[in-house]
């Protein structure tokens, strides 16, 4: 029996298999409360160990021009990367785009300074959420305090959204990034659509 195959070079076919489709729903006041943007070219690394050692601090500073975030639940960033402090011995490095050279260099050096690094780029999907209703919409499924005076830019959380584990980080007052385990992407997109419906939403890739 011949099986059917998807033409993975055809963008239309690829789009048809993705839960992430361009879509726009306006609110009653013709407004868009939240814009959901999908990041499809990211590299993510889980870094474990004592990140407080000076060698590592220097390494990050040299390569990315920012410091290792000093406390848990904070992150630092430049235009192409984020470094999230997730725990006493855990960092998450997110690189936008496919500039692997810096990361490979980092990985090599990390081994030298006895920190472990695990590539988890395919483990997660990343969404950018912006808009004036973003905090309200996230509050519908996220139990952390998303008040703009509490969750300020530079904070990150390992939390839940609906029934999905997520890593949420606040980049600007009305701009968040959301890391989702890739198998939950359909659920989270669906959840965001249902929760944003009355406020209006726009999805683009």
């Amino acid at each position: 029996m011949g099986y059917s195959y998807l033409n993975l070079k055809d963008k239309k076919v690829l789009n048809s298999t993705s839960c992430f489709k361009k879509e726009q729903i306006l609110s009653k006041n013709k407004d868009i409360g939240i814009t959901i943007n999908y990041h499809n070219n990211i590299n993510i690394f889980n870094i474990r160990g004592n990140y407080k050692i000076s060698d590592f601090q220097m390494l990050v500073n040299e390569n990315f021009k920012y410091k290792v975030p000093s406390s848990i639940g904070r992150f630092n960033q430049n235009k192409i990367s984020f470094l999230l402090n997730l725990g006493p011995d855990e960092l998450l490095f997110i690189s936008l785009g496919s500039n692997l050279t810096t990361i490979e260099k980092l990985e090599k050096n990390l081994k030298r300074i006895q920190l472990t690094i695990t590539k988890v780029s395919d483990q997660y999907e990343m969404l950018n959420l912006t808009g004036k209703k973003v905090r309200w919409i996230l509050s519908k499924g996220c139990p952390i305090n998303l008040d703009k005076n509490f969750t300020v830019p530079g904070l990150c959380f390992q939390t839940i959204l609906g029934h999905s584990n997520v890593i949420l980080f606040c980049k600007e007052e009305n701009s968040f990034s959301l890391l989702i385990l890739s198998s939950y992407l359909d659920y989270v997109i669906n959840w965001l659509k249902v929760s944003s419906h009355e406020h209006g939403y726009k999805i683009f890739n």
Binding site: G162, S164, S183, Y187
Partner: peptide, 14 residues
């Protein structure tokens, strides 16, 4: 709340 139908329990897909 909205924990009904497809949002009642996440469905994970490979």
């Amino acid at each position: 709340g909205n924990d009904i139908k497809s949002l009642f329990d996440p469905v994970r897909l490979t």
